[in-house]
Nucleic acid binder design. Sequence first.
DNA 1: TTTATTTGACCGAG
DNA 2: CTCGGTCAAATAAA
Length: 305
Amino acid sequence: MASVSAWPEGVPTSNKERVIEELVNGQECAKQLEILLHNWCEKNGRLSAEELVHKIFASFDHALSLLTAVESAEDSQNQATSYDDSPCCNGRSEDSTNSRKKLASKEKRGCYKRRRDEHAWTVVSSTVEDGHAWRKYGQKQILNSKHPRSYFRCPRKYDQGCRATKQVQRLEDDGSQMFQTTYIGTHTCRPDSFKAPQIIIDSEPPESYSKFSYGSSNPKMPTKKLHEITPPVKQETKEETPTTSGLTDMDSVVMWKDIIGAEYGDVASNVYTSTEITSQNLELDLVIKPVEFEDDFQFDESEFV
DNA sequence: TTTATTTGACCGAG
DNA sequence: CTCGGTCAAATAAA
């Protein structure tokens, strides 16, 4: 593939090289980690694996920082100041339990801001499961599209101000039941610990994950809404029962499951299409495993000022 | 009961 | 104006 052909014009060559270097490094670490996980029987492997994970995170973090540094050079004026999670109303306007028409007439319910210059990339896959917890907040019929588009946001939007959203739309040729998922923004919520993977690695993947594959037959899915995709996005519930640590590790948990390659056979067929930023192309070209990585590794991106 | 999803209205951008 | 993204009341599910 034409690997670095689609670089943003403003990216200095030195940065390109550094980014590539970082990504390659991350890839290397990932490979080692994969080997480690294969030979999991060794008890000392746990520590090494954790170190590797840290290294991987660091590499991706650096690379992405470089990318965003360039990219946001222009947009930053828009973004940095105003693209906070909360529109001016800060999410809820609980004032009146009456109809919102009232609101509309008196106080303007949604003075929210549209995020145009956010990182966005598209994934075409036979599954909409990506290892993240999502909460559906809307669905729209799109012009010239057979299927409606579903809108999801991060469940921690209000907890942690995570701005990540995604839009899922079934492709026109539904013979193969492919979904096009557009991710907008990166997760700023904290996966914050690497404890979870150990638990998962040692045990079999929880069977509850099987219900995340919407493409195939899903016995638990309510039959009434079968006419269109209405992915059961109920992961949020699980997250809100942290029990021990008040922190949620779901992201890393599922991510690790992906690494291990549990029952995600179909994810391998992903196709990526970069829309704004080209880091995704880069990632593809370097053949660094699936997007789930990228999504996860951008967790505390530098955009926080 | 609480929590998640549905769905039509609202809003901003073009 | 239209279109698409978001909000939040109503509804469904657990």
